[in-house]
Write a protein that binds this DNA or RNA. Sequence first.
DNA 1: GTGGTCTAGACCACA
DNA 2: GTGGTCTAGACCACG
Lengths: 129, 129, 129, 129
Amino acid sequence: MRLQLNFKSGKPPYRQIVDQVKAATAAGSLRAGEALPPIRTLAEQLRLNRNTVAKAYAELEHQGIIENAPGRGCFVRDGGQPLRKDARRALLAEPIDALIVQAHHVQIQGEELIDLIRERQRRLGEGPS
Amino acid sequence: MRLQLNFKSGKPPYRQIVDQVKAATAAGSLRAGEALPPIRTLAEQLRLNRNTVAKAYAELEHQGIIENAPGRGCFVRDGGQPLRKDARRALLAEPIDALIVQAHHVQIQGEELIDLIRERQRRLGEGPS
Amino acid sequence: MRLQLNFKSGKPPYRQIVDQVKAATAAGSLRAGEALPPIRTLAEQLRLNRNTVAKAYAELEHQGIIENAPGRGCFVRDGGQPLRKDARRALLAEPIDALIVQAHHVQIQGEELIDLIRERQRRLGEGPS
Amino acid sequence: MRLQLNFKSGKPPYRQIVDQVKAATAAGSLRAGEALPPIRTLAEQLRLNRNTVAKAYAELEHQGIIENAPGRGCFVRDGGQPLRKDARRALLAEPIDALIVQAHHVQIQGEELIDLIRERQRRLGEGPS
DNA sequence: GTGGTCTAGACCACA
DNA sequence: GTGGTCTAGACCACG
């Protein structure tokens, strides 16, 4: 589970954590019973205060996504069937549009943007499927 | 020019206005020289306070997207990107990486992500408004 | 760091704060990394509303002079001028012309103006605070 | 009488007109009985609305600096002795400081600033006294 | 404790 | 009519 924060988006960090964990569980890439990273570990990775991460975890527990077992860690609860592919693709529509717009603003469009993305995929070690 | 606020996203309303106006200029549905709705009018439409809309417009002016002429109104400015191509591409590296990670969370990778992006490009290019 | 407002100048208070902080960093009495007074404290000192001071600080952050860290405070940033020398000199042409004209109005010209400027340079260089 | 507006200073244009005319009369470069440019002429030169210039003139008349003779124009009233040299020099202290600070921000200081100013003086056709 | 955002309502400068 | 600034006081996110 690799979380990615965007400090310029305006969305508060604790909300970004909540939303990303929810997306991962909904898509099935985080399975029921799996453990989330300990609060202090995640706080270090994301360079956030522990209180902030704790708040995100508390919110996730409040929404029934995870279960907080004091002293043992946080675990994903069973959330039923993972989403179908269309639903998962729909989750990406908004962030993709945002990227296209931002690219347009620096006058990079169409295939040039696609090329750039492929380059970053290669660099992140994610070869074309 | 139809603005739509999402009060559940966690992103502050004034930021949503900024991002949507930027998107509209990028997509061509707002052209250079065109007038934006007056602050008071937009505030009424969106059921926001005048100051909140004013803050959004001020931010847009600060970013060089629009021009605020006291007494006359707010107008879309002419683009004009002085940076060299490498610099512009570099600006996109971070948001692209964020998207790739987010897509990974919902188990969409490689060429499947590329396909999705092409689809959104087509849809945005079809000319809104 | 002693800020002084002039309510008769016609210049808005938040702009006076911005200009004075910029002056202080330029003069070296505010060094990189140093903390500015908290918004609420400064607002009290200057008998301004908190929002007004916040606007000034936001503007300073936007100009890259300071860094506002929610929860920790506001800090002076490291300078770092990426523009080339010609570009920087060009930025001064307009304000210099304005000064020459203003001096002309009070019948101070040529070398007499230069002398006056040298005198102010000496005084500012003596290191305030 | 050459007026110079600075739209970025934050000081309202009508105040800049008032202050500059006051400075010129105080320094003696505008003498009693002399005519000010007609409102519509000045408005065109400064690219302001006539109302704005009219407001400045009205303020000047209110302060007893000028006299408005409807149909004939605006004239400077007798303001007694013009200021002594020290007083005139003092009027320039603040704008000079502002320039030095701004120059410092683009890392132009000392003699380099002096050189730049001399260059602008030459270009404005104002040879060293 | 810190800074960030929003509302409500006022006054000013400009066209 | 337009946008710009200020006040007052509220709530939120972060450390």
